[in-house]
Design a protein around this nucleic acid. Structure first.
Lengths: 404, 404
DNA sequence: GCTATTAAGTCAATTCGCTTGACTTAATTA
DNA sequence: TAATTAAGTCAAGCGAATTGACTTAATAGC
């Protein structure tokens, strides 16, 4: 990763970078606003009508946008709105979890077009990779049956798995030690021929919320993910923040519970793993989701007690997140059934007073995000889409040059 | 601040943006590497020699860079290194604290050229502004006596004061309620004719560390500031992160200490305010700094006990910061005498195991940053310099257009 | 129903900063 | 002394946004 040269400097840019940025800005504007005319885009992006016209023409011929029927909205020539073409690009998302793996194919606007899942051997990555490549191949085939040109419009494979990554001693039984050491990304890149990227599951949740959920168009949001583990996905300045080594937001094992005898890690008190333990359930059960849903609907006292305890701890986590990040909103996402997540959010209210408790808010301090169990895989798939099409600083910079 | 149009979109860019970015990249490269030839710059920035030549020529005629003697370093024509001209730009920094205010004038490379301080009426902003404007006027005059052209090269006035800003109920006695309500920035902008920007004191410390200290050239660093209060200044992706409303990192009043009976806010256990209270000292004393220094040198038992307690809490804070941000390094800065800060850092070792405890580190997990009491004012002054000259996403984007 | 007005969008010429490729300059190596 | 290597310049070219005039197509007002 490091440069050969000891000189530290950012990359410069040129007209290509300008053009790439402006294309991305158009795409993002259409993603956030639905459909816009060239004139709308010109006003919104501060570019001239002519520049917008040229870019839209390009995007249209690339099959990324399409014109709708013209609309009259008062005096003047009617405008022709453009919208994104969902089948303009596709990506594959892969969730690798402790007990199973899921693959999805999504389009440019984040709709899931194909999905598949399988059990995964916890400690045998080399065998697991076979399973994974089979799944990926399956959704790719399914996708190409729906859209013949999907293969040439595939922008990448996004992988989400529990972090943290790249540590010295991966002996924590909660993690997946064998998988941590396996050269997964390289193997998948070779096996699929796609660009592969990695994020942890909380980051994937945040990415999913950003493309189709509550963080859509929000520049500062923190996504608190309550799954088998607990993590935070950080949207800062409109981009996912991953830290120096891709492990930002791995808050599960940090002590966030202020009270309670002998300060327990948050993950031991508010994760689904702690819930399974509390209830004496086996997380590997096929119908675990239904079991939980049933218990919540029945208002089972044991699960209600856990909700109260977890909500207490999570309340403090939200307070801490607000204090540290000063986000516009906090989004709680979960792998749990929606009824459970909703109860949890309700039990977290009233929230603790914090700097987020300010005049003129336009977003709620805490929102319930998606609880679809497939949202991590969706977020994984959204990462390559975002990298390819969203405006970002690094997309403007030059990457190589002949250095004449 | 909000757009009139309901359309949400990022700004586009054009050749002006390209050029502005490339100029900034050159300046940053020279700042980080000392002196570089045009060929060096071309390699480092990925631009062509010709492009670099043109930009350097521009910067030279703007008085921002200057050529040094050419050096032979092997075969080929000798290269002509360029370096930044310190007097190419100036900025004024202003620290407003509970008991006093400080103003400094700095140049492009962050050297302090003039300084002044004064006491400040805690609860009378309208009178205080008079004092402040007097101080600023003083350092400006002093500066212009050293460099006649300083006025036309002044890029702004940076203000640092204890946050958080813009809250509903500013009734916390630790804050400065009267000042929070006063339209300070507007008044200062009118009174000085300069662009005014605001950050909290921890952010200012981080800005100072970035321009001349331990965070120089580091893209992911967290600056833990132990002053009258406690805060964190966040350098993320090479830029100061301020959150959605400028209050990111205000961790002092968040509960970060896991242990201890009845979980006390970090600020009540590890700030200098808590130390003064512990020692029964008056922070308004003129020689408070010397008093502390003396006590540390004498290894006074009471101060040693406080150090142990504070170190215990701060150790957890560092762990939490590492877990949440995954930074390359954590920098402890303080308004305390260096001997005290050094003791504190020593007492914090050994650090708690964390994800930062990884193979292949090249920076220490925890470093002692500057303990110069003027560093907040320096950081305040560095903010306008950074905004004017450092590469950043927002500097590329268009700001207005005739919208023809 | 006619005309003025307003707004969307196009056309063609221009501008501006980076790129390209050949060239010059000035050192070291053999 | 000649070959080689690297820094840096020259001049033409390119590409994407800009500019300003123009066209198109609607509504508003008389």
């Amino acid at each position: 990763m490091d440069d050969i040269s000891p000189i530290r400097a950012k990359s410069g840019t040129n007209q290509e970078g300008t053009s790439a940025h402006n294309r991305r800005v158009m795409i993002e504007a259409l993603r956030l606003n639905g459909a816009l005319s060239r004139a709308d885009l010109a006003r919104a992006t501060q570019l001239t009508k002519q520049a917008v016209s040229n870019i839209i023409e390009d995007l249209e011929s690339d099959g990324l946008v399409v014109a709708l029927d013209s609309v009259r909205k008062g005096r003047g020539q009617p405008s022709t709105p453009y919208r994104l073409v969902p089948e303009g690009a596709f990506a594959i998302g892969l969730q690798i979890d402790r007990h199973l793996t899921r693959a999805v194919a999504v389009d440019l606007v984040g709709s899931v077009l194909a999905r598949a899942e399988a059990n995964l051997p916890f400690d045998e990555p080399s065998k697991g990779v076979e399973v994974i490549l089979g799944l990926v191949g399956g959704v790719r085939r399914e996708l190409s049956q729906i859209f013949a040109q999907s293969e040439e419009r595939l922008v990448g494979l996004g992988v989400a798995m529990p972090g943290p990554f790249g540590l010295k001693n991966s002996d924590d039984k909660w993690m997946m030690p064998a998988w941590q050491k396996f050269p997964l990304l390289e193997t998948l890149a070779k096996g699929t021929g796609l660009n592969v990227s990695l994020q942890n599951d909380a980051a994937a949740c945040a990415t999913a919320e950003r493309i189709v959920g509550a963080a859509h168009g929000v520049d500062h949001a923190v996504c608190l993910y309550v799954g088998y583990g607990i993590g935070a996905g950080l949207i800062l300045n409109g981009e996912l923040y991953s830290g120096g080594h891709g492990n930002a937001g791995e808050i599960g094992m940090a002590l966030l519970s202020p009270a309670g005898p002998g300060s327990t890690p948050l993950e031991h008190r508010a994760s689904l793993a702690s819930l399974y333990q509390h209830l004496g359930l086996n997380p590997a059960d096929d119908d675990i989701y239904q079991q939980l849903d049933g218990l919540v609907t029945a208002e089972d006292p044991k699960i209600m007690a856990w909700i109260d305890g977890a909500a207490h701890d999570l309340r403090w986590s939200v307070h801490l997140i607000e204090t540290i990040f000063d986000p516009q909103t906090v989004i709680l996402t979960s792998g749990a059934p929606e009824a459970l997540a909703r109860r949890l959010v309700e039990a977290m209210h009233p929230l603790l007073p914090s700097i987020a408790d300010r005049p003129g808010r336009n977003l709620p301090r805490l929102q319930l995000g998606t609880t679809d169990p497939w949202s991590i895989a969706l977020g994984a798939a959204a990462a390559p889409i975002s990298r390819a099409f969203d405006p970002r600083f690094s997309a403007i910079l030059k990457t190589r040059s002949s250095s004449t």
